[in-house]
Nucleic acid binder design. Structure first.
Length: 842
DNA sequence: CTGGAGACTTGGGACAATGCTG
DNA sequence: CAGCATTGTCCCAAGTCTCCAG
């Protein structure tokens, strides 16, 4: 059911020459684009993090105020920052700067442009399962540059899955209606409070008496030297808050948090700040720098406690049977046997490679002359049963016991959970060494079943500040492999993966940390930047489709696929891994020409997830593919002149720092932004979140984020259906009662049990009917979405691809509490995005 | 220019916590 | 208020991309 390709996706109106300037202004426009809403800005939207602008004192406040100053004087900040912006990244620095100017011209801008946009270009082509509702009126293109350029092609070309899409035309009407709404304050505020109060309890960190000292020293220094310029604000903010927590001001902070939670009095202040200063977001993104550039210093002081190891193996003494006879094993042998035993009812047991690999490794442990000579004659049932019993025991434990156990664990781990980076306490991501296990690769993995041996301190390299105390090795008598003080990297510890010795496992900070937040933000800024380059990029590759130079031609087609289908780059892989492909590694047989310019893609991508999609492509692309396939055998590379480094090198010529993966981010975030703005209607929160979910789903489909259907999916569906039937019967009866009640007759006896019902008045019955109808409707919706989403995983895109600022600003505009969209951890992860301006657009 | 090492992001599924309902 | 479904987190595998030596 491939959909016809949106006609000439690449109709470029603008000469590609004048490029970047233009692009910039376009981008600016897009920022403020939200017609007629500018006044909104003045009114509301607190600086989100209840933290940032609230009570301040002491040193912390000094830092904070420097932040605020930059907020207030946008212009100053901008001029200051743009020249200093990383030269590799020319436009990012000032991208937002003209917010003030921009506002005005923009309307005309796009009105002009819309005229010369061919409708055919605008048309969004996705056939839709069920919601064709999008209103196709005002065929107005809402984006600054009316060329289709900004529409990710993938948005126009759906997968041929049953999950269609909606909306036909670019339609401004939604925007207008949204414009009338004022943004919400409450939810954001809650976040703020959530944060400040959330972190507080943990501060009593044990393992850092030294640390405390360092922190305060550091914070003093900060106040004086910190020149705002080399530290992203997002990060600074964190600092402020956290430092405050530590200091005496923490009490005050908590109070504020509390207040915030209630009504929202603390807003007053923020609003004022906003008014005079305006858009903290902008000053913030002005600061953006590419700190990820390597070889660069990432920290000055780094303190942490290393990592924790799983407890040593406790032998259980249960014997396996070999040819029916019990065999005694050494603890080491038994441990591995147990790892195998517990896999009994997984599908791995049917895989020969798995068993072979396991046997090879286990046999080595058993030794040449062991009684056990093959796996076939081994019966692991006794161990399996023993494990089941242990599991049950655990389950049976009382609540208190479980709690005690958990607390015990917490106590042991607490000190590993935190690191102090440049005086700021940050959560550590994975501070636990991976326990031994059997390697479970995905897909057909040549190494599945191999024994992943235990990691010991001796495998682990610790990276830590020069002046920081070296973490004590948690296993007595052993020691770390090495201590380094490398301030150009962000990992705290690393070791070699025993399964793939040339792969490293690294311990770094959690997703909520400022390091991660910072690079996350950079990632999205890059995607935004692509928005203004995409027109030229598309023009360039369209030209390349017919290039005589075969390498150039392949680059063009590959880029087209990456843009249009959001394919991954596709690095080379060796034979020791599952056989999967990405764009550059597509094999001849992965793409089939089906006539009428339709190409069928069928391959295993990352994690051996199947990608199946049939799309209509540009005729020259179709021809090119036929040409690339000519004289090749299945198994040969489709793009034989290409690899990811060549591709990325080429992309970098088109836009600074552009790489293949940016297209996925761009596609995803753009689609979200676009759909949210087109489809959000007035209504209750649940309806709006459904719109969000729908957009989220489209993105997941574009990115091919799948999940396996839960095993009881069908049971659950039929259960719901049953319930609906029941309710419908009740409804029917109620309607009869209503009729009778109106005629002042008593209700009939209840059909189910024949008992009398209460004699209710018509209003009451009417109310009941409404209630039940609503319930039925809800259940029907539930069934629908469940069915709809049974194979689609929404989480991945939410976590990795959707610019949280789009989400947050949408929530603000539509009074949707952010908690409806983000879980607690995601709120933490996206803390850097919470004070975005409600007008933010990608 | 190439291949491998290293650093960091993205991915699905297992499992634990939480929520809901009879 | 137990028992189960749902949701949220953790785990660790599998990608991308950069850098550097030869």
């Amino acid at each position: 059911m491939a959909v016809e390709a949106s006609d000439g996706p690449v109709t470029f109106k603008k000469s590609s020459a004048s490029k970047s300037n233009q692009l910039h202004s376009e981008m600016k426009n897009s920022d403020s684009y939200d017609d007629g809403q500018s006044n909104r800005k003045t009114s509301d939207v607190p600086a989100s993090n209840g933290q940032s602008s609230s009570s301040l004192n002491g040193k912390a406040s000094a830092i904070e105020s420097s932040v605020d100053i930059s907020k207030e004087s946008n212009l100053k900040t901008y001029t200051k920052s743009s020249p200093s912006a990383n030269s590799k990244f020319p436009s990012l620095g000032n991208k937002n700067e003209s917010l003030l100017e921009k506002k005005i011209p923009k309307c005309d801008d796009f009105e002009d442009e819309e005229d010369n946009t061919p409708l055919s270009d605008i048309r969004m082509k996705m056939n839709n399962d069920n919601d064709k509702k999008a209103t196709p009126n005002a065929l107005k293109k809402s984006y600054e540059d009316s060329d289709d350029d900004d529409i990710p092609l993938s948005a126009r070309l759906p997968h041929n899955t049953n999950l269609g899409e909606s909306s036909s035309n670019y339609d401004d009407s939604d925007k207008q209606e949204t414009a009338s709404k004022l943004s919400v304050k409450r939810p954001l505020d809650e976040i703020g409070s959530l944060h400040s109060s959330g972190k507080k309890p943990k501060l009593s960190d044990p393992g850092s008496s030294i640390n405390a000292k360092q922190i305060s020293v550091r914070s003093d220094a900060k106040v004086e030297e910190e020149d705002d310029d080399d530290i992203p604000i997002s990060r600074k903010k964190n600092k402020v808050v956290k430092l405050m927590d530590k200091s005496s001001s923490s009490k005050k902070l908590t109070n504020v948090a509390k207040v915030n939670k209630g009504a929202a009095p603390s807003f007053k202040k923020k609003e004022k700040l906003k008014k005079s200063g305006n858009e903290s977001e902008h000053s913030q993104s002005t600061k953006l720098q590419l700190s990820s550039g390597d070889g660069q210093k990432k920290w000055t002081t780094l303190v942490h406690n290393g990592i924790i190891f799983p407890p040593p193996y406790k032998p259980h003494g249960v014997k396996i049977l070999y040819k029916g006879k019990p065999v005694t094993l050494t603890p080491e042998q038994e441990e591995v046997a147990t790892l195998f035993a517990v896999m009994r009812d997984t599908e791995y047991m049917e895989k020969e490679i798995f068993k072979d690999n396991f046997w090879n490794d286990w046999r080595e442990l058993l030794g040449e002359n062991h009684v056990i000579q093959n796996l076939k004659d081994c019966d692991f049932t006794p161990i399996y049963d023993w494990c089941q019993i242990e599991k049950d025991k655990k389950k049976q434990m009382s609540l208190e016991e479980k709690k005690a156990l958990r607390e015990e664990k917490m106590k042991q781990e607490e000190k590993y959970m935190w690191a102090i980076v440049d005086g700021v306490k940050e959560k550590v991501g994975n501070f636990r060494a991976e326990p031994p296990g059997l390697f479970r690769g995905r897909g057909v993995h040549p190494k599945m079943g191999k024994v992943k041996r235990r990691i010991r301190p001796n495998d682990v390299v610790i990276n830590i500040g020069k002046d920081a105390p070296i973490p004590e090795c948690p296993i007595p008598g052993e020691s770390w492999a090495e201590i380094t003080h490398d301030d150009t990297v962000t990992w705290l510890a690393k070791w070699r993966d025993p399964i793939k010795p040339n792969k490293l496992k690294m311990v770094s900070l959690a997703a909520s940390s400022s390091w991660k937040g910072q690079s996350d933000k950079e990632k999205y800024e890059k995607a935004r930047m692509l928005k203004s380059y995409i027109g030229n990029i598309r023009a360039a590759y369209t030209k390349g489709f017919t290039s005589k130079d075969i390498t150039k031609q392949q680059i063009a087609v590959a880029t087209y696929f990456i843009d249009k289908l959001a394919l991954r780059a596709g690095n080379e892989k060796d034979d020791e891994e599952a056989d999967t492909v990405g764009c550059c590694t597509l094999k001849v047989e992965n793409v089939t020409a089906e006539g009428h310019n339709k190409l069928k893609f069928d391959f295993l991508g990352k994690d051996s997830i199947k990608y199946e999609n049939t799309v209509e492509v540009e005729p020259p692309v179709y021809k090119a593919i036929l040409k690339f396939q000519k004289d090749k055998q299945p198994g040969d590379d489709l793009f034989d002149k290409l690899d990811t480094s060549k591709l990325n090198a080429h992309l970098k010529e088109l836009m600074p720092n552009l790489t293949a993966k940016v297209f996925r981010t761009f596609n995803a975030s753009f689609t979200l932004d676009d759909m949210l703005n087109k489809e959000t209607k007035d209504g209750v929160v649940a309806e709006k979140t459904a719109v969000y979910q729908h957009a989220n789903k489209q993105v997941a489909i574009i990115c091919n984020h799948q999940r396996s259907v839960s095993k009881n999916h069908s049971t659950q569906i039929s259960k719901l259906n049953e319930k609906i039937d029941e309710l419908q019967a009740v409804l029917k009866e109620l309607k009869i009662d209503l009729d009778r009640a109106r005629k002042e007759k008593p209700p009939l006896k209840r059909s189910s049990d024949g008992k009398n019902k209460r004699n209710l008045n018509p209003e009451a019955i009417g109310k009941k009917i409404a209630q039940i109808s609503a319930k039925i409707e809800k259940m029907q919706r539930d069934i629908h979405t469940k069915e709809d989403l049974k194979t689609v995983a929404l989480g991945t895109s939410k976590i990795n691809y959707l610019d949280p600022r789009i989400t947050v600003s949408w929530c603000k505009r539509h009074e949707v509490p952010i908690e409806k969209i983000y879980t607690k951890t995601l709120l933490e992860k996206f803390a850097w995005a919470m004070d975005v301006d409600p007008d933010f657009r990608i």
